[in-house]
């Protein structure tokens, strides 16, 4: 180390007085490769044993398309619902004082902490035709459990914390000066919100909605109990992967997996792009 110290900084890293880079970085890269990267590579390679046309034929089967459409569509609707209510919850938590506020704040993380299978059976029991919420909905003629609506309900549950937790710090940091200026200049409270606050929140809203959407697309545990899992109607894409695996159709399962993985990568890069875009505007 003392010998290396006299040499000019090596090409790929700057000199440091601290020891342990080789060991810690070596272990990090090894563990990352063994647990995450090599397994993901196995997923990306697998579908090509079918060839490009085989891959396309696999993922354009009507049943696969229907499952993908449901997973993406229901996740999108859930994200929109969460954007609306998440904004209200975050706004109330940051701006207002009300009883049990701390409890509500802690409870927002429940969908993160509650195992998805537990959430799944609870939502299913709640919205079943004889459940606490399912029965009143039935009398209104709405069937929630075992329909695509059930999928939307489960994905709304799963996505809520993403929107609230993304908005909260932005709202807390938001200075009230601009709102005050708007009010002084004669804007109504609603105008001040729409023209001043909302634009400032928009990047965080989009980020939160995108995170909720990305989580919803891949969600499995909380959905399968309430969905009913009818092929072509209420069968989500992750479930179809499991069905293909049980039929030992590994390439078919991997094909759907690759489509979902590609979608989440696109989301990840879009989000990174959005974040650097908003950072550059500040």
């Amino acid at each position: 180390m003392s010998f290396a110290g006299v040499l000019p900084a090596t090409r790929w890293r700057a000199r440091s007085a601290l020891p342990g880079l080789g060991l810690s970085l070596g272990f990090t890269v090894f563990y990352l490769s063994a647990v995450v990267l090599i397994p993901l590579a196995a997923l990306v390679i697998r579908p090509w044993e079918l060839g490009w046309s085989g891959f396309v034929a696999e993922v354009t089967q009507p049943r696969v398309l229907a499952a993908l459409r449901l997973s993406f569509g229901a996740a999108a609707i859930g994200a929109v619902v969460n954007t609306f209510f998440g904004l209200i919850v975050a706004w109330a938590l940051v701006r207002y004082r009300f009883p049990l506020k701390r409890l509500v704040d802690a409870l927002v993380d429940l969908p993160f902490a509650l195992p998805t299978a537990v959430a799944g059976i609870a939502l299913s029991a709640l919205y079943a035709p004889n459940g606490w919420l399912g029965a009143p909905l039935m009398s209104l003629g709405i069937k929630a459990a075992y329909t695509p609506l059930g999928v939307v309900i489960a994905l709304t549950f799963i996505g809520l914390p993403f929107v609230v937790r993304t908005l909260q710090p932005v709202l807390t940091d938001l200075s009230r000066d601009h709102e005050e200026a708007a009010a002084t200049l004669g804007a109504t409270r609603f105008q001040a919100f729409r023209r001043v606050v909302f634009p400032a929140l928009l990047p965080a809203l989009v980020t939160g909605a995108a995170l909720a959407f990305a989580r919803g697309v891949g969600e499995y545990g909380s959905v399968i109990f309430i969905a009913g899992n009818l092929p072509m109607r209420s069968e989500i894409a992750p479930l179809l992967i499991i069905i293909k695996l049980e039929e030992f159709d590994y390439a078919g399962a991997a094909s759907i997996g690759v489509v979902m993985l590609a979608a989440s990568f696109v989301m990840l890069f879009a989000l990174n792009g959005l974040q650097s875009f908003t950072a550059s505007r500040r």
Binding site: L43, P238, I241, I242, G257, L261, S264
Partner: peptide, 16 residues
Amino acid sequence: SVSPVVSGLVYVLIFG
């Protein structure tokens, strides 16, 4: 950002 099911799937593709 990977679906839980895909996370399991990758190991089946290697060790299954």
